[in-house]
């Protein structure tokens, strides 16, 4: 079981059989994400390897392995924004040490996103997951 927030998405996706509805849902999640201020859209938060522009800002509460991992993010592309929202559901409020235990490809495959996103976007997804794991590993080791 993943986080309740992610399980909720997985439940919703079970009802959304056609890709247009899934895309619509992903896009809506992106639209309702908390915004990322322009001041945080800087090289340090930018994720390379995405076809569009992506920024991820970690907001970790606490110290050491039990600190709570959180992040905000943004993209100039709407579908990618939705993917960031999906990743927020997957990772937010998880202990930093547990972030590294999450099998992101397997969880995302449950949503069928691997089938529904182009290779370039999947690569973007991978780059985002790698950045999240790196941020969590740094926080856990601190």
């Amino acid at each position: 079981m993943a986080t309740p927030a992610f399980e909720e998405i997985a439940d919703t996706f079970e009802f959304l059989e056609d890709w247009e509805d899934r895309y619509r849902h992903v896009i809506d999640m992106g639209k309702s994400m908390p915004p990322l201020e322009d001041a945080f859209r800087v090289p340090a938060t930018k994720v390379d390897g995405c076809a569009s522009q992506v920024w991820l800002l970690p907001e970790i509460e606490g110290q050491g392995p039990s600190a709570t991992f959180q992040f905000r993010g943004a993209s100039d592309a709407m579908i990618v924004s939705g993917l960031i929202a999906v990743l927020r559901a997957l990772y937010n409020d998880v202990a930093v040490a547990d972030v590294l235990r999450i099998d992101a490809p397997a969880e995302l495959a449950r949503l069928g996103l691997n089938d529904h996103l182009s290779a370039q976007r999947s690569n973007g997804l991978r780059a985002m997951v790698e950045r999240i794991r790196l941020l969590a590993a740094e926080a856990a080791g601190a």
Partner: peptide, 14 residues
């Protein structure tokens, strides 16, 4: 609006 060219091409590809 806010749609990115990559959004459009992803949906058209579908």
């Amino acid at each position: 609006g806010a749609a990115h060219a990559h959004d459009i091409s992803t949906i058209l590809d579908k």
